[in-house]
Simulated scan of single mutants.
Amino acid sequence: MNQEKLYALLAREMAGTLTAEEATDLQQLLQQYPDAGYIREVFAQNWAPAGKQYTGLQVQLLLEKHRQRMQEMPDTVRETIVPVRRSMWKLYSGIAASILLLTVGGYWFYSGRQQAPAPQAQLVTEKRMRTQVLLPDGSRVWLNAGSKLDYPKQFAAHAAREVTLEGEAFFVIKADAERPFRVHTQAFHVRVLGTSFNVRAYPQEDSAETSLVQGAVEVVLNNAENQVISLKPNEKITIPVHPVVAESHATTAPVVIYKSKLIPVQDSIIPETAWVQNKLAFKHLELEKVVVMLEQWYGVEIGFKDDSKRDLYFSGVFETESIEQVLDALETTMSFTWHKDAAGKIWIK
């Protein structure tokens, strides 16, 4: 249908997306349907540059402005332009309105498809829970207790693969040079092409860390994007989450980043990744931080009645032991005692 093609080409012309070949076709059709040229001229007086986004109210006002223009024109002028247009105005004004709405609506649809974020999925683990998920690109993620992972249900074809982590996760990433993989946390971003690494970034902890098992990653601080730290296999970095404010100046002191080697606590068991094998492991770690791990691992509540015990250091590997057995094992060092109250809360003194 030539008329349908004509109106489609007029809409593309108004949107500024007409090709040279389509422009030639439009000129031929305007010669065939001269009344359409009148609509084209009326709208050209008020049409904004291509790419402008309209609200529904703006569209309504624009159409009303055209109707007002026609009502305000003297009868002699309207009759001089073309005698038959008075009877045809309702038809052509409807067509013109359709062209405008189709063009603006098409822009909304196109820009919406371009800008709307991909549908998201979320994986959450409570205390005592550990799980794993296969991402849409074939990468696999193990999620530790008390953690949350947000990721798209489908990664874009030609864009970075991005996920957001709160808590702890171990990643085995499928290599894809065209689509780098990025993990966002409250303290830093991890950039990687293909590798396996661990990220720990619990919101209640005062530091976050990334441990690299194999491959290569870059860590970018959230508050210092120009500061990039590269990791080699068997290395990890620890970053304070809440930088200390210098007393003499009203500015934030530089973030101190600790880089260290991954050291097995027993045989080949690495504390940072032992949880993936369903093992609870820690090496020369303050009891205060060990307690946090125990709370997440066993879903219990532990408090200190003697704060001096918080700074005691412990190493250990546990797999099938109960919380009572773990505490009994640590208590054998004779550095603290523990008991459980009537409410079930554990106290260390």
Results as ranks from 00 to 15, higher is better:
G105T: 03
Q115S: 11
L100Y: 10
P119F: 09
Y107N: 11
I81N: 00
Q120W: 02
V104C: 03
S98W: 05
I95Y: 10
Y92K: 01
A116G: 04
F109W: 14
S87M: 03
R85V: 01
S111L: 13
P117F: 10
V104E: 14
G105Q: 06
G106Y: 09
Y110L: 13
S93E: 14
G112I: 09
I81W: 03
W89Q: 10
L100M: 12
M88E: 12
S87W: 04
P119E: 09
R86I: 01
G112L: 13
L91A: 05
P117R: 06
A116I: 11
A118Q: 13
L101S: 08
G112V: 07
Y107D: 12
S87Q: 11
I95T: 07
Y92T: 02
W108L: 09
Q114I: 14
Y92V: 02
I81H: 01
R85Q: 05
V84R: 09
L91Y: 04
G105C: 02
Q120T: 11
S111Y: 14
R113I: 10
Q115A: 14
P83I: 01
W89M: 06
I81D: 02
K90Q: 13
A116H: 12
A118I: 10
L100G: 01
K90F: 05
L100A: 04
L102Y: 08
V84T: 08
G94P: 01
A116V: 14
P119G: 08
L100T: 02
Y107I: 05
L91T: 12
G112Y: 14
G106E: 07
F109Y: 13
A116Y: 15
I95N: 06
P117G: 08
Y107Q: 15
R85F: 09
F109K: 13
S93F: 07
R85I: 04
V82M: 03
G112W: 14
W89I: 01
T80M: 06
L100Q: 05
W108T: 07
S98G: 11
V84I: 03
R86V: 00
G94Y: 00
Y110M: 13
P117N: 08
G112C: 07
R86K: 10
G106F: 04
W108M: 11
R86P: 00
V82Y: 06
P119Q: 09
M88N: 07
V104Y: 07
A121E: 09
M88R: 05
L102W: 03
G106K: 11
